[in-house]
Amino acid sequence: MDLWLIGIGTGNPEHVTLEAQRALRDAALILIPHKGPDKSDLAELRHRIIADARTTAPVVAFDYPTRDPSIPYKDRVRAWHDEIARRWQATIAEAKPGGPVALLVWGDPSLYDSTLRIASRLAPAPTLRILPGITALQALTAAHGITFNTLAGAVTVTTGRRLRDHGWPEGAETVAVMLDGECSFQTLAHRDLVIWWGAYLGMEEQILDHGPLAEAGPRIIAARAAARADHGWIMDTYILRPRGLS
Rank of each mutant, 00 (worst) to 15 (best):
I92K: 02
C183E: 04
I130C: 08
Q186D: 13
T127R: 00
T17W: 06
T237Q: 04
P97G: 15
D68M: 13
P126Q: 02
A93T: 15
I239F: 10
L240Y: 03
L213G: 05
L193C: 05
L188S: 09
D63E: 12
T66A: 07
G107I: 12
A79L: 02
L240S: 01
E83S: 14
G198M: 07
A176K: 02
A226S: 03
L45K: 13
A20M: 08
P218A: 08
Q138M: 15
P13Q: 00
G7I: 11
F62P: 02
I8D: 06
I71C: 07
F62D: 01
P69R: 07
D26S: 14
G244N: 05
P242C: 10
I118C: 02
T56A: 09
H166A: 11
G167A: 04
A23D: 04
D52G: 00
T159Y: 04
W196Q: 05
G133A: 09
Y238H: 01
V194D: 10
A61S: 12
E83Q: 11
L131V: 15
V77H: 11
W196C: 00
E14I: 09
A143R: 06
A53T: 03
L5A: 07
Y64W: 13
T141W: 04
V155D: 07
R46N: 07
G145Q: 14
V175A: 02
W106C: 09
R164I: 09
L131H: 11
G244F: 09
L5S: 01
P132F: 06
A93E: 15
P126Y: 03
I134C: 06
A43V: 15
A57Y: 12
D180W: 13
F185M: 04
G202F: 11
G202I: 11
I8N: 07
E173T: 04
T237E: 06
S114I: 13
E94I: 14
L201F: 13
L116H: 00
A226W: 05
Q186S: 15
V105N: 01
R48T: 12
T135V: 14
V59M: 00
M1V: 02
L193W: 04
K96I: 14
I8T: 11
L111H: 11
A93W: 13
R78C: 13
N149Q: 14
A20G: 14
G232E: 07
A222L: 09
R48A: 08
A51K: 08
E204A: 15
E94G: 08
R161T: 05
G7H: 10
Y112D: 12
A79V: 05
P37V: 15
A139F: 14
E205R: 09
V77L: 05
A154E: 14
R48L: 09
